[in-house]
Simulated assay, not measured.
Amino acid sequence: MDINLSNKPALLLIDIQKGLNDLAYYGGKRNNPRAEERAAELLAFWRSRQLPVIHVKHNGTPPSRLTKGSPGNDFKEITQPIKGETVFEKEVNSAFIGTELDAFLKKNSIRHLVLVGLTTAHCVSSTARMAGNLGYDTYIISDATATFDTLGIDGQVYDASLVHEICLANLKDEFATVLTADSLLSKF
């Protein structure tokens, strides 16, 4: 996979929403505390070069912290969409299901996707897998994504950093290229 500015890569900001701040609700621990800051740095870069920016919002069902109409459904200020930026709302993990994302990308001849956001184990992974299956050149930014501790089927708690690394390892080379924000920016 080769990414450069002439490819007009789209930045997909996935579920960077206030409801994901409730650490107690999500198991109490999360990795990459600066993930939103790194995503905001990439967003500023994309905006400065007038590259495509797409925000994805998850509308959860009660009792989700992301339930539509609740304060947790709102985007975090750090990566708040601005006028003219595309927003897709979804009700499941993948940004491709129940939205017009694929049609929008095809209509705008976008073949290269850069994924940032929350959470690596859920919506980022689901979106990356579908993007890869649909033939998009997909890049996941490891330090601009994050996840939470995960409770295993036997009750064991798996550390968020371990879950994050395993998710990225499962996606790497099969569905996406995994890079840090700095390594991505060095390609431009």
Rank of each mutant, 00 (worst) to 15 (best):
H164D: 14
F175I: 11
E41W: 01
A128E: 04
R34C: 03
T177G: 04
R111Y: 09
L168G: 15
L43S: 12
L43D: 08
I54W: 07
L13S: 09
V124K: 05
T86W: 15
G60T: 15
F188R: 00
E77V: 04
P52W: 07
R38F: 01
T120R: 09
N21E: 11
T138I: 12
E165V: 04
K68N: 14
V124M: 11
A10I: 03
L20W: 07
I3E: 00
D74C: 08
L115A: 07
N7D: 10
E91H: 11
A131W: 06
E100F: 07
N4M: 02
V53K: 05
V157H: 03
R49L: 12
I14F: 03
A160H: 02
I97W: 04
E41F: 01
D143W: 01
T150F: 08
K172H: 12
L51A: 06
L66C: 14
T180G: 01
T180E: 00
E77F: 04
N108T: 11
G155M: 12
V56P: 00
R47D: 07
F188K: 00
L185H: 02
T147I: 05
F104W: 05
W46F: 03
S183H: 12
E174F: 09
G19W: 13
N108W: 08
V163T: 02
L113P: 13
S48K: 15
K18Q: 05
L184M: 03
D143H: 01
Q17M: 09
Y139S: 15
S64A: 13
E91D: 14
V92K: 06
L66Q: 06
E37V: 10
I110T: 15
K18S: 07
N31P: 01
R38V: 02
R111C: 02
T180K: 00
K90H: 07
S161Y: 01
A121L: 13
L118H: 06
N31Y: 01
E41D: 14
F188M: 04
G28Q: 11
E77N: 11
A121K: 08
H58F: 06
R47E: 10
V56A: 06
P81M: 03
S64E: 08
